[in-house]
Measured scan of single mutants.
Amino acid sequence: TEHYTFHTEEQAQRAAKKFKKQGLPVTIHEKNGKFTLQVN
Rank of each mutant, 00 (worst) to 15 (best):
T1I: 13
T1L: 12
T1N: 09
T1M: 12
T1D: 09
T1G: 10
T1V: 12
T1H: 13
T1A: 10
E2V: 14
E2L: 15
E2S: 12
E2K: 14
E2P: 09
E2Y: 14
E2M: 14
E2Q: 14
E2W: 15
H3G: 08
H3F: 14
H3E: 12
H3L: 12
H3S: 12
H3V: 13
H3K: 11
H3Y: 15
H3I: 14
Y4A: 04
Y4L: 09
Y4K: 04
Y4G: 05
Y4M: 08
Y4D: 03
Y4I: 06
Y4V: 05
T5E: 09
T5L: 09
T5S: 07
T5A: 06
T5H: 11
T5P: 05
T5Y: 10
T5D: 05
F6V: 01
F6H: 02
F6G: 00
F6D: 00
F6P: 00
F6R: 00
F6L: 02
F6Q: 00
F6N: 00
F6Y: 10
F6S: 00
F6M: 02
F6C: 06
F6E: 00
H7T: 11
H7W: 11
H7P: 11
H7V: 09
H7A: 14
H7Q: 12
H7F: 10
H7L: 12
T8D: 06
T8I: 04
T8K: 04
T8P: 00
T8A: 04
T8Q: 03
T8Y: 04
T8L: 04
T8M: 03
E9V: 12
E9N: 07
E9P: 06
E9R: 15
E9D: 05
E9S: 08
E9W: 15
E10T: 06
E10L: 09
E10S: 07
E10P: 05
E10Q: 09
E10R: 11
E10F: 08
E10G: 07
E10M: 09
E10Y: 08
Q11A: 14
Q11H: 06
Q11W: 05
Q11I: 04
Q11E: 14
Q11D: 12
Q11G: 07
Q11Y: 04
Q11M: 08
Q11S: 08
Q11N: 05
A12E: 00
A12F: 01
A12T: 02
A12K: 00
A12H: 00
A12M: 04
A12D: 00
A12S: 01
A12Y: 01
A12I: 02
Q13F: 09
Q13H: 07
Q13P: 00
Q13D: 04
Q13W: 10
Q13Y: 09
Q13T: 07
Q13L: 14
Q13E: 08
Q13R: 13
Q13G: 04
Q13V: 10
Q13M: 13
R14I: 10
R14G: 04
R14S: 07
R14Q: 11
R14E: 13
R14F: 06
R14C: 08
R14H: 08
A15L: 06
A15E: 05
A15Q: 05
A15N: 02
A15M: 09
A15Y: 08
A15G: 03
A16M: 08
A16F: 07
A16H: 02
A16Q: 04
A16L: 08
A16S: 05
A16W: 05
K17G: 06
K17T: 10
K17H: 09
K17R: 12
K17V: 10
K18P: 04
K18S: 07
K18F: 14
K18I: 12
K18W: 15
K18Y: 15
K18E: 10
K18D: 06
K18M: 12
F19P: 00
F19Y: 08
F19I: 05
F19K: 01
F19M: 06
F19G: 00
F19A: 03
F19D: 00
F19W: 07
F19V: 02
K20P: 00
K20L: 14
K20S: 08
K20R: 14
K20T: 10
K20G: 06
K20D: 04
K20Q: 12
K20A: 11
K20I: 14
K20F: 09
K21E: 14
K21I: 09
K21L: 12
K21S: 12
K21M: 13
K21F: 07
K21W: 06
K21A: 14
K21R: 11
Q22Y: 11
Q22I: 11
Q22A: 12
Q22L: 14
Q22P: 03
Q22G: 05
Q22S: 07
Q22H: 09
Q22W: 13
Q22E: 07
G23Y: 03
G23R: 04
G23T: 01
G23P: 01
G23W: 03
G23A: 03
G23L: 03
G23K: 03
G23N: 05
L24Y: 10
L24D: 02
L24M: 08
L24C: 06
L24P: 01
L24E: 03
L24Q: 05
L24F: 11
L24K: 06
L24A: 04
P25T: 15
P25R: 15
P25L: 15
P25E: 15
P25N: 15
P25Q: 15
P25I: 15
P25W: 15
V26E: 00
V26F: 08
V26S: 04
V26W: 04
V26C: 09
V26L: 04
V26T: 06
V26H: 03
V26D: 00
V26R: 00
T27S: 09
T27R: 07
T27N: 05
T27Y: 08
T27E: 09
T27G: 03
T27V: 10
T27W: 07
T27M: 08
T27A: 07
I28P: 01
I28Y: 03
I28L: 06
I28Q: 02
I28V: 07
I28D: 00
I28S: 01
I28R: 02
H29E: 11
H29T: 14
H29P: 00
H29K: 09
H29L: 13
H29R: 10
H29V: 14
H29M: 12
H29N: 07
H29G: 06
H29Y: 14
E30S: 08
E30P: 05
E30R: 09
E30L: 09
E30N: 08
E30F: 14
E30I: 09
E30V: 10
E30H: 10
K31E: 13
K31N: 11
K31Q: 11
K31F: 13
K31L: 11
K31G: 06
K31W: 13
K31Y: 13
N32L: 05
N32W: 04
N32C: 12
N32D: 12
N32T: 02
N32E: 07
N32G: 07
N32V: 02
N32H: 06
G33M: 02
G33C: 06
G33I: 00
G33L: 02
G33W: 01
G33K: 03
G33V: 00
G33D: 03
G33R: 02
G33H: 03
G33S: 03
K34E: 09
K34A: 08
K34N: 06
K34M: 13
K34H: 10
K34T: 09
K34Q: 10
K34F: 11
K34Y: 12
F35N: 01
F35K: 01
F35Y: 11
F35P: 01
F35A: 02
F35D: 01
F35Q: 01
F35S: 01
F35W: 15
T36F: 14
T36A: 06
T36V: 15
T36P: 01
T36L: 13
T36N: 06
T36C: 15
T36M: 11
L37Y: 02
L37T: 02
L37N: 01
L37S: 01
L37K: 01
L37A: 02
L37V: 12
L37W: 02
L37I: 11
Q38L: 13
Q38F: 14
Q38P: 01
Q38R: 08
Q38M: 13
Q38C: 15
Q38Y: 14
Q38A: 09
V39D: 02
V39K: 02
V39N: 02
V39Q: 02
V39Y: 05
V39P: 03
V39G: 02
V39H: 03
V39F: 13
V39E: 02
V39L: 09
N40W: 13
N40D: 11
N40P: 08
N40I: 13
N40F: 13
N40H: 13
N40A: 11
N40L: 13
N40Q: 11
